[in-house]
Amino acid sequence: MSKKPQLTRSKLPISGRIVMFFIRHLQHAMGSMGELWRNPVSSIMTMAVLGVSLSLPAALQVLVKNAETITQSWNSAAEISLFVDDARSERTIQSLITRIKVYPEVSEVSYINREQALEEFQSLSGFGEALSYLDTNPLPAVVTVTPSLRYSSPTGARELLKKLELEPEVSFGRLDIEWLERLQAVVKLLERTVLAIAALLVLAVVLVIGNTIRLAIMSRRSEIEVMKLVGATEAFIQRPFLYTGIWYGIIGGILAWIIINLLVWYLDSALAELLGLYGSQLQMQSLSLVELGQLVGLASFLGWLGSYLSVRHHLRAIEPS
């Protein structure tokens, strides 16, 4: 009996092995697609479950994206009102304005002098008559500063406000951004919620695919036993199942994308009406092509992961007896 230290791994030459490696992968990929076609009802059910599961985090993503665009457009509306000391003359105020205008943080400055402020107040407040009884004009002159884009965020605007308050002519300044900060906090909370829900649904997708693949493995138990008996490696046996998982992911991802587009289309007119009431010209945005790619990519990865976990666990358990 001759002693051979190593088992022959393959009887084919290396070049043939490399070519066959790709051909086999292609065959398995196509073959598992064919398997899905052969059991359309159960395949479609699984894909629908995946599509719905994936569409929820994707819908929340769309929501966050749109909320961000809206808050961004409001961000730039942040304005700083500087109230000038009553004692200052018109000339010092003008020199203050010129100084502020050259600030790199400032994009626009407008000035309302005391008379203009009084007129405006009279016409808008309805206290016009009452004001005429006063001896002096109680209203200060106001310099309105619009920060440049980089300083329009709440923190940036606040920094700028502090700097402006150091000007000797300014008695105090006001930045009305509390509501903006609250909105941003809400958006942040929304983002966190999206992440948490997305994580849960991603887990659900992995579990659904894992279970589907488990059932597929169980129904082909005898075939797997025979394959093991005639010398199939585990890599060979698991490959079709992995491709099945990837197909489930890809098709589930595309389904989710379709669901999102239908949802956006359905909501668009209602939202346009709402935004129209706020005088906004914003259009609801759906998922971009890049995001479609990300969605399908993530879904196919989840499909692979779910089936890999399932295959690892269940294929080993099947041994010929």
Binding site: T8, S222, E223, L229, A232, E234
Partner: peptide, 19 residues
């Protein structure tokens, strides 16, 4: 290595084990 050893063994069964 087991699969590679089994490739050198042709096995025939009483109940055929056909697909």
């Amino acid at each position: 290595d087991v699969p590679f050893l089994r490739r050198d063994i042709g096995m025939i069964f009483q109940n055929y084990h056909l697909l």
